[in-house]
Each structure stands twice: as C-alpha cells, then as structure tokens.
Nucleic acid binder design. Structure first.
Lengths: 334, 334
DNA sequence: CCCATCTTCTGCAACGATGTATGCCAGGAA
DNA sequence: TTCCTGGCATACATCGTTGCAGAAGATGGG
C-alpha cells in the first residue's frame, strides 16, 4: 500500500486536512507546522495520488492531442515540441491518432479521451465545424491546422496561403513556368491543401503565368503518394519544370521518383516542399521549403489552451493565432 | 454536471450497485433488469467516469512509454505502432520524453508518471540496471532496446549483433574493405551502439578484414552528427569505401555530407543504415539498411506488458523476446 | 475588559465508482 | 412443513483527495 495523506498526518501529528493545506500552499499555516508536515512527507516518501486528486478536483493536468498519424514527421516533431511546452507548465500530453477516420475524431471530442484531459489540441481532418460545435463540451478546445476556420473556435495556424504564394513566387522568379502541385485536394478551398493551392494560384496570377489544371495532382499526404503522383504525371507526358509538394514528405517522395527516372533536380525540375521537417535539410539535394514556425505554433497553442483552462482567457469568441513563416531556399530549388 | 451511475440507477429504478453490475458484466442479472439499465444508460447518455473507476480499482488502463525523443523518426514510428497495438486491446499510451536525461528516466520509474500508468515500456539510455532494480515497484515494466540486458527484467529487443554483422558482411561481400562506423560508443559493449559495433567487428573477423579504430566515429544519434562525423573523417584524410551509420538518420546525415562534397554514393562510398525508417526507401539514393521487425517489436512488447498487467504471465524471471530482422538492400549499397 | 477580526487548524462531506456482505425470494430436497 | 441452495438485488464501506464550515486561540481597537 502506498503512503497516504493520512499516514503523513499521523506522523506529523496534525490533521489530514492540514497536510492537504500544506500541499496546496494554503496561506495560514505556522512555519513550524509546515516544516513538520514537510519532514513527514520526506521521511515517508509520500506522493500525492493523482487519481484521487483528479476525482476530487475534476482536473487531470493532461492535455489531449488529436492528430492523424504520429509517425508522419511533421506531426512527430509537433507532438514532441507540444509535449515539451506542456511539461514546462506542469501538464502532460495524451496523444490520440485518428488515422483521419471520422469516428475517431468524433469520439475524441466527447468520449473517454475528452474525460481524461483538461483541454484538447485538435487537428481535424475529416469532420466539419458543425460536427465539432455540436459536440463542444465545457472543456477548452484549440484547433490546430486550418481544416476549420470558424470564428467560434480558438485556432492556431500558419500562414498557409502567404507562404505558399511566396514559395511559388520564388520558383517563378527562378524562371520556372510549369509548376506541378502534388497533394492538392481541388474540391476543398479550406484546409492546408486548399489554402496552399490558393497561394500557388495567387502567385501565378501575380506573375501572369496561366494556371494549368493538368499540373495539379491530388493525393494523400504520404511519401509514396508523392512518388506515385510524379510518376503518373511523367507517364502521362505532362511537361513541368518544377514540383511543389504541398508538404515535405510529398516533395521528398516526388524528388525520389524524379531522380530514379534520371530527371535532374534542380537542373531539369526544381522541387519545393512545405513544413521544413528535419529531414529536408539533409535530403540530397537538400529541399527548398517553408518553415512554418512550428516552435511558435507549439508554444502559442499550449499557452492559449492553458489560458483557457486556467481561466485567464475569457474571450467568448475564438482567438485566432497565426505564426510567422520563413522561406528556406536550398539546393532543390535555388 | 455529468450523468452518474446514481442518475442511471434512479432512472432505471434499481440500485446503484446493479448499474455497476450491468456495466461489469456480472453474471446473475435478469435480462429484463439488464435491459432497463441499458436503456437508461442510452437515454441519459451515461459515460463511466474513468477517474473514479481508476481510484477505486487502482487501474488506469494507460501504459507509459519512455523514450528519449519522439521527433526521432524511429521512435515516432515505434510510438505510433505501440499506440495502435495498445488501442486494440483497450489501452492508451502516455509518452514521456527523457531527452536522455538521467533524472527524467529515474522519475519515470517511480514518480507521478508511473502512478498514471498500469505498466511501463521503457527505453533507458542513461541509467543502469541497478538504478532500475532499486526503483522497481510492483507494476510491470518491459524494457525496449538493449541498453540493459539483465535476466531480472522483461525485454523486447532486436537482433542487433546478428543484423549488424549481416549488413557488414553484405558490404564486405560487395568488395568494400574500409567500412567507417558512425555513431559508435566504443566504451560501451551493451546498448544498441555497442551490440551493433560488435556485429560489425565479428563480420570483419569472419571475412579476415582487419579492424581499424580510425574508422570508428563516435557521436550522438542525430542527423547532423552523422554529417559532422563524416566531415571529420574526410577532413582528417581517413580513407574509407563504405559507411555504416548505426542508425538510419546517421547514415542519411552521412550520405548528405558525402554528396555535398562530391563523393559519389555508392560508386566511391557505399552507405548503409539501421532501422528502415520510412524515409530510407525514399532517400536518394535509397538507403540500404536493416529492418528490425518493428511491427513485431510493437506487438510483442504490448502483448508481454499486458500479460504481466493482467496476470497471465507469471514467470518471475524476465522474459526475453527477440524480433527477427531483414536486410533491405537498396541503391546506397547494392 | 469586551467584542471583532485575524490566524491557525480541524472535521465532515463529497467526488463517482467497485468490493464485500448480506437480504430476499423461489424452488427442490428432506 | 422446514431447510437449503441458487439467482438476483441491495446497503454500506471504501479508494485518497479537496471544499466548506467552523472552532479555538491570538491580536487589537475602543
């Protein structure tokens, strides 16, 4: 049996409640008493029972993080940073992988997962704003990413459109005229794919380069899809002098396929991505991409969520945070 | 306020305990009673309070996973798989990043983290078997990786030595004679670095190739270290015709540095890694490496841990599981 | 010197579930 | 009829903590 507050109280010769008061930094305790309690705690090796504390207080000091797949490098890096930011403020992060399955996303909002956490960092990929609003409990929820743009929700995001435009502009400035886009979802205008595609189109327009739908390759955001999409373009005989992978793994998959087929990067085809995962710097050739301020996203989303949880932030409208971005010009698209 | 078992009991016209009995599949309940309770549960939208259940039962249905850094691709993929395997059996995984800091590893063994979980999957990097044994509570602990090989502990591992030997043999069979090793920790003979280096040495011996300490480059297991280590070798004028990165990110970092400097891979220098992370297949050139059976490691470590937790496995000695491996011969070292 | 206020500490109830012990009823055995 | 057994439901205590209310002693102003 573990040591309880009762044991400590007995050892220190005070009431159980006084022990509780010492632990919770209650103001009015004589230094001598406090010392005796602390000595007893140290001597017995007492550790507070978090489960009991949670039951009583209704707080778990855990944050939920819902994302599609932790093994995707961008999410892995984000999760790692979020966990560190949370740990600094005394919280833990419990991760749930949705695999982009609607049911899992829905259950994360109201099921046991929600119960275990004081607040949620949510990256919805499938379900829409109404589904979320309908299941919105009393616990704070901060959205990550840009599938949902709704004034009701708190949101921490990146400058997708601007960044994609800047990256595309860079490709065009280098003389590229036919920039293929890998990973688009043309039917959606929101979400990272939609916004990044918008940025791309705006940059084209700005430069007076016509938009060619043949250059747009829709696919899921995985490495092998990036490779397959480029293969399909080549096989179809589509001509292009640059590839914009809507995220880094797509771009890297695409680059791999190009190199396999003897297409020189960047001489014949430039390649650019989005996310600046660690791998991008060390790819061969190294990958030109957008660094979306992940550090800032992690810090600010934790800060916002904790402000909500601890009642600092009371704006009933959603707070929207946009992190800054940086172009990382590397060998694949100088 | 959330719906409690009491509310359900009232609605169904039974006692609170009967509701509990229905939820826990108690044998002797009249079908009619059971039905009434279930209807009430459905109607009120009752959900069991996991915190209360944990307090009463002493179980959390969470597993702890301690690793150094979730953003490392190997760990990210492993964590993802472990979480899926756990989810299938009704458990969640709570991750703790140790950053290879001794205090964090120690606290994971006995602090609040331990309390929150029913069992631990532990990848110790710093602390030794005695430190672990001294802090071993009653809750099950399964070690992952091979820093610790101790008959007292359960352990799920990969065939480091054999696999490294097989990989090295492959390089030698292709005619390579000076194989540099990146990421060794020559002072340690246990742990992944030590075992993999052993395998390397055995393969050399087997082939009658002399061991040259000048080819051994110690460093931390990060991409940039792999690049730096190769840079240092080249700058020192050390001659080599192959590089064995003790894990994939090291090999990829090394390969990047080689290519930057105009060294052709694999023509001049072959490169091989260890782990077979997703990225290895799509690197350019694609990376020859060892697939250490991560799927199997994930499945079996969860199975073993849950057997311990649920009392199926009662062997008081540690159970040791070794997953199989597969050589993945790709372009970087055909 | 008395009452009000402040400081310090205490006891009780409650958070929401489960384990143990037990009660009650029906049916079969004695 | 009486006793026993098995099926079914219940009451109470309990897990370890914190909120609330209040008691007892110290302090201070008039």
């Amino acid at each position: 049996m573990a040591v309880t507050m009762n044991d400590v109280a007995r050892a220190a010769g005070v009431s159980l409640k006084t022990v509780s008061n010492v632990l919770n930094d209650y103001e009015f305790i004589r230094p001598a008493t406090k010392q005796r309690v602390q000595d007893a705690i140290a001597e017995l090796g007492y550790e507070a029972n978090l489960t009991a504390r949670s039951l009583r207080s209704g707080k778990t000091r855990m944050l939920g993080l819902v994302l599609s797949d932790l093994s995707a490098p961008y999410y892995a890096e984000l999760a790692s940073r979020l966990m560190k930011a949370a740990a600094q403020r005394g919280y833990r992060v419990l991760v749930e992988q949705s695999d982009a399955v609607a049911d899992v996303e829905l259950n994360a909002l109201q099921g046991p997962f929600r119960q275990l956490t004081d607040g949620l960092l949510f990256t919805p990929l499938i379900i829409d704003a109404e589904a979320i609003a309908a299941r919105l409990g009393k616990k704070p929820l901060v959205m990550l990413g840009e599938h949902i743009l709704d004034p009701r929700f708190d949101l921490v995001t990146m400058k997708n459109e601007e960044a994609a435009a800047a990256l595309t502009a860079h490709l065009l400035a280098a003389g590229r005229r036919r920039v293929a886009v890998i990973g688009a979802r043309p039917e959606e205008s929101t979400g990272s794919p939609g916004l990044r595609l918008n940025g791309y189109r705006k940059a084209l327009e700005q430069a007076g380069v016509p938009f060619d739908p043949a250059l747009i390759a829709p696919c899921e955001w995985r490495r092998d899809n990036g490779a397959a999409a480029v293969a399909a373009l080549l096989d179809r005989g589509v001509k292009f002098d640059a590839v914009f992978g809507l995220n880094d793994v797509l771009a890297l998959g695409a680059m791999h396929e190009l190199l396999i087929r003897g297409v020189r990067v960047p001489d014949e085809v430039a390649v650019a991505g989005f996310d600046d995962i660690d791998e991008a710097r060390f790819a061969s050739p190294s990958l030109t991409t957008v660094s979306p301020g992940m550090e800032e996203i992690a810090e600010r989303s934790i800060a916002l969520l904790l402000d909500r949880i601890e009642g600092q932030e009371t704006n009933s409208q959603g707070v929207h945070v946009e992190a800054g971005f940086q172009l990382k010009i590397r060998e694949s698209a100088p």
